[in-house]
């Protein structure tokens, strides 16, 4: 220790060799991690630019009319996206309609005091486990188990409600409705997890206020918690919608892959991701590839928009709470 006393000179600079190396190592390290961040951040741009570049033949030829043209004929090089856009939107809408009440119900029983805590966490875990199952396996199950199991249900809808345009065709298995059901199963975990977080972020004081006025547990949930959480629930729904729009494998395996637009949900249909999955492997004509790229670009942009809305909605709530 004594030698520390002797030098009364500071050696801030010139610096000894070892620390010159460490200084260089520092800027090198900083530089490398900066480049990594730059590369990572550039990927979404790169993605848009490349897909756009390869979509150009189709964009040039069909323009915006692509969006409302119904014909998709590979032999004649005629491409219109309407059936796929329609199928994507309708199947996602069905999914959202079915999944929203279920997801919110799960969020309620796993966050509000209607169940003992020892049960809440396992239930939340199990529901989130659904999200970990690869979608191709959900599709496999949908095709071989769910569709046969729901066959009587589809028949029932047809035989009793065929006066409704949405149920006016004879079901034969794969259908828009089945795609919606499978998608619903897959997006319930998203809605449940985010709504649960939103419920938990709502201050307990708000609930206590309701209890102090004599409200029951359920009254406080319906009249206090849910209204306070509404924008967060919308956010969860948008996020789930984003997931549903882009979901590919499970939908492909149960939607039927028929390029028709039909009002009946019991009829098979098609969706953008399903079409991409089925045709990209065989596409060789630049215009065909271009049309598929055009669809991929649309899908990407729409998903981005939906996710951006979700982010804004969830953020406003967490900020207010």
């Amino acid at each position: 220790m004594t030698e520390a006393l002797e030098p009364t000179q500071s050696n801030l600079s010139p610096v000894p060799t070892e620390s010159w190396i460490s200084q260089f190592g520092d800027s090198g390290f900083r530089g490398i991690s900066f480049l990594a961040a730059l590369l990572t951040a550039s990927i979404p741009f790169w993605m848009c630019v490349l897909i756009f570049k390869d979509a150009r033949p189709a964009i040039a030829k069909f323009g915006l009319a692509f969006l409302w043209t119904q014909e998709w004929n590979i032999d004649q090089n005629l491409f219109g996206a309407l059936p796929y856009i329609y199928g994507t939107l309708v199947s996602s809408a069905i999914a959202l309609l079915l999944a929203l009440p279920i997801g919110v119900a799960v969020a309620i029983i796993t966050s509000e005091k209607v169940l003992p805590e020892g049960l809440q966490t396992p239930i939340a875990f199990l529901v989130e486990l659904i999200a970990a199952i690869p979608s191709v396996i959900v599709g496999l199950w949908g095709r071989f188990i769910l569709i046969p199991a729901l066959e009587p249900f589809q028949q029932f809808l047809y035989s009793h409600f065929k006066w409704l345009p949405i149920f006016n065709t004879q079901p034969f298995g794969p259908s828009m409705l089945m795609a919606g059901v499978v998608l619903a199963i897959m997006i319930v975990p998203t809605i449940a997890a985010i709504s649960r977080e939103v419920f938990m972020a709502i201050s307990q004081d708000l609930r206590n206020g309701a209890f102090a006025l004599g409200a029951t547990q359920w009254e406080s949930i319906v009249f206090i918690t849910l209204p306070a959480a509404i924008s967060g629930i919308f956010g969860a729904a948008s996020l789930a919608l984003g997931r549903a729009l882009g979901e590919t494998m499970a939908v492909t395996m149960v939607i039927g892959n028929v390029n028709e637009i039909s009002t009946s949900l019991l009829n098979p249909g098609n969706s953008i991701p399903a079409l991409l999955a089925n045709q990209f492997g065989e596409a060789s004509d630049p215009l065909h590839v271009g049309a598929l790229m055009y669809l991929a670009l649309l899908l990407f942009l729409v998903t981005l928009a939906v996710n951006a809305i979700a982010a804004v909605l969830v953020r406003t709530l967490t900020r207010n709470a």
């Binding site: 500071s10 050696n11 801030l12 610096v15 620390s19 200084q23």
Partner: peptide, 15 residues
């Protein structure tokens, strides 16, 4: 620090 400005531009912070 011992007569040297520690806020000089070329200060070796680690040192």
């Amino acid at each position: 620090l011992l007569g040297k400005n520690i806020y000089a531009k070329d200060t070796n912070l680690n040192q």
